[in-house]
Design a protein around this nucleic acid. Structure first.
Lengths: 208, 208
DNA sequence: CTCCGTAACTTAACACCGTTAAGTAAAACC
DNA sequence: GGTTTTACTTAACGGTGTTAAGTTACGGAG
């Protein structure tokens, strides 16, 4: 029993080492430039060993994408303390942008790169990491509506739209489409745009 | 002279055939699954011939990305007829979404895929296709501001934010992140979200 | 009409990639 | 001590972008 357990421990260790290697590589070269062979070489194993611990490359990056969501949830952690739902909504938007800026590669993997989504069970279309993060947003917006904000709007559609706003901002930045903005405004563009999103949401509120 | 010209014509022809082959392949398999070798095989040339007409793979897809912008401009064409800037802004947003829905692969190449951006002159950071499309949006928003809309807001930042909103909507769709939304709302999600964006912009207006 | 240079294209190769089948060596078990 | 199982590697398949060197055919000059 103890022997079997030690074995299992060892197996976990190697799985962890593979992920660490993959993480380090993709953190400074991006997803597109990290290969199974790279990952294996870095930990002095044959490339095929990776396949004893992960189904395929997508599965490796699905695991990293999961890590990204754990990290995102840490950014969201303190938000539960904000009791006013509208304030929480604004804070969520800020935290989301902050996460994306500080963890660009993770963000890319979580919300732009196709690879990790290939590991989802396609029949039962379940993306539990996305579901839970989005659920938090829907809940917050529902509470806003309950308090009289966003009158007549559909909570889920509005949640998606708010998400789209912030995702749009950071994904244009991550994929290098911000050169259209004048050089002066490019500095902290994501923050400026997010402040504007927040101002827009606030203007809607003040009206009601 | 006539001989030289015929030669040049022939050369243009082959360049065109390469692009047509590339276009057809990427239109139904996407960028990730079309290779130089595929493109060449489809027109019965050796893969290396492509390099006589394009610097590298990025350059081929930069050309297709340019085509995408020409197509987008066709969607934008009739918008100049809309004289009221706020109406034009709303129509632009609708046209943009429509373009993205009807030309998903082009959209991907223009605003998400990294490859075509590698063909940009990096020192003089000029993305003329993006600049011109964005310029149109900035102009429209400036005219809105001149008419009293969006009081106190910076035109360029607002233009970027509006762009980010619609880009967020369609890019989440294109990269398969919409499963978080309940099945009922997934139908025409982009249109629904865009209608909401428009409603948000309108609410801001009615207030002033 | 022949020779030559050049334009247009191909062949072969390099260095990668993800992935699988078959093989090996050592440890675990009876 | 012999057998089975575990953990890993080697070798290979078919793919990728890209380059250097080679071939072939044609236009123009003598």
């Amino acid at each position: 029993m103890t022997v079997a357990k030690r074995k299992e421990k060892h197996k976990e260790d190697l799985r962890g080492k593979i992920l660490q290697s993959a993480r380090e590589l993709f953190m400074d070269r991006g997803f597109e430039h990290t290969s199974i062979r790279n990952i294996a070489e870095k930990i002095d194993y044959s490339p095929t060993t990776i396949y004893l611990y992960f189904k395929d490359k997508d599965a490796v990056f699905y695991a990293l994408h999961q890590e990204g969501f754990i990290l995102l949830n840490q950014y969201f952690k303190s938000l539960s303390l904000v009791s006013d739902p509208f304030e929480r909504l604004k804070a969520t938007s800020k935290a989301y942008i902050q996460f994306a800026i500080e963890n660009g590669e993770y963000y890319d993997l979580m919300f732009i790169v196709r690879s990790p989504m290939n590991s989802l069970d396609k029949d039962r279309s379940e993306w539990k990491e996305g579901d839970s993060a989005f659920g938090f947003l829907v809940q917050t917006i529902q509470q806003c509506i309950d308090k009289g904000y966003f009158k007549g709007m559909h909570p889920e559609i509005l949640a998606f739209t708010v998400w789209a706003m912030v995702h749009g901002i950071v994904s244009l930045e991550i994929r290098n489409r911000c050169s259209v903005v004048s050089e002066l405004n490019q500095k902290d563009l994501a923050h400026k745009a997010n402040n504007l999103v927040i101002e827009i949401l606030e203007r809607m509120h003040n009206k009601n």
